[in-house]
């Protein structure tokens, strides 16, 4: 256990400890625990999983088995700005693929990856956000933008990059 948490700061350990206490008695707590870890760190650091697994005496492999099954969990750090492109059916037939390729290029996301090397942007696809009547839909840092097109996407990217250089957000 010592080895597992060598990279973790005390403050982080406290938060993890709180998660363990909260879920000590709950059945089926693995998914909520992973969700809480991701809420704190933005992704799922290996050290955290190992710490929690050992603490609750649940096999680490069980955590990894569950975490790798669900698309919501990420094992690498994510960008400061999260851009989510809906690729549900309605968005698809209204040109979401095109928007995704524009976003990928404009945000500087390398082929086959989802986060820019400077960790400023993460571009992810989601199956459907349920806002089909305003397809195609892009979500930028939790704000939903409907009826998008190439022009509007390009404008949003410029805004996003401007905001990024101003205050580092």
């Amino acid at each position: 256990m010592q080895k597992a948490c060598k990279h973790l700061k005390d403050a982080d350990l406290e938060k993890l400890e709180a998660i363990c206490v909260r879920h000590r008695k709950g059945k089926g707590a693995v998914i909520p625990i992973l969700q809480e870890i991701q809420d704190i760190f933005g992704y799922i650091p290996e050290d955290c999983v190992n710490f929690v697994a050992d603490r609750l005496e649940i096999a680490r492999s069980h955590f990894y088995g569950v975490a790798t099954f669900y698309s919501q969990f990420h094992f690498t750090p994510r960008g400061k700005n999260i851009v989510t492109a809906c690729s549900g059916t309605a968005c698809h037939v209204k040109g979401s693929e095109k928007l995704i390729s524009i976003l990928g290029r404009e945000l500087g996301i390398p082929e086959g990856q989802d986060t820019s090397p400077d960790l400023n942007f993460t571009l992810e696809k989601v199956n459907c956000v349920g806002a089909c009547s305003i397809a195609p839909v892009i979500i930028i840092n939790n704000v939903v933008h409907g009826k998008m097109n190439g022009n509007k996407v390009a404008k949003e990217v410029i805004k996003l990059k401007g905001a990024g250089s101003d205050d580092g957000k």
Partner: peptide, 26 residues
């Protein structure tokens, strides 16, 4: 309330149950 974690197959009832139990949703 139990939150899903992004797996379409969990709409299938036995997979949904597995997911609530904290397993892979198979």
């Amino acid at each position: 309330v139990k939150l899903g974690a992004g797996a379409f197959v969990c709409g299938e009832e036995t997979a949904l149950i597995a997911s609530i139990e904290g397993q892979r949703g198979m």
